[in-house]
């Protein structure tokens, strides 16, 4: 097997055969309402588990109200860039 180029995203090479879509006329209950972030608009709030200075905690964006926040998403821990 040839080595694959590791790339810079977290490796997610696994694929699975397509599962047939459920035929239903009812709207998907868990459909997430997409209010995609835009400049000039309020940032959507979130509350997430976090690692912070040696401990496990949660981080909630709205707790930082009154401060400037630099919010950085990245593909994954232990990637190369």
């Amino acid at each position: 097997m040839a080595d694959e180029n590791a790339g810079c995203a977290r490796p997610t090479g696994a694929t699975a055969p397509e599962t047939p879509e459920k035929k239903t006329t009812e709207p998907q209950a868990k459909e997430i309402k997409m209010s995609v972030a835009r400049v000039g608009t309020k940032a959507p709030d979130f509350d997430a588990p976090a690692y912070y200075r040696g401990g496990f905690t949660r981080v909630k964006l709205s707790d930082f109200a009154g401060k400037w926040v630099l919010l950085c998403f990245y593909p994954g821990d232990f990637t190369f860039v």
Binding site: R10, V36, A37, F64, A65, L71, P75
Partner: peptide, 25 residues
């Protein structure tokens, strides 16, 4: 929520947001 999740790869893209004290991006 921030439009930076890649469903196919299951990872976040490199999205960087500057949010002001009013919570506005």
């Amino acid at each position: 929520l921030f439009g930076v999740y890649d469903e196919n790869a299951g990872v976040e893209l490199r999205g960087r947001f500057i949010i002001d004290p009013d919570g506005v991006i």
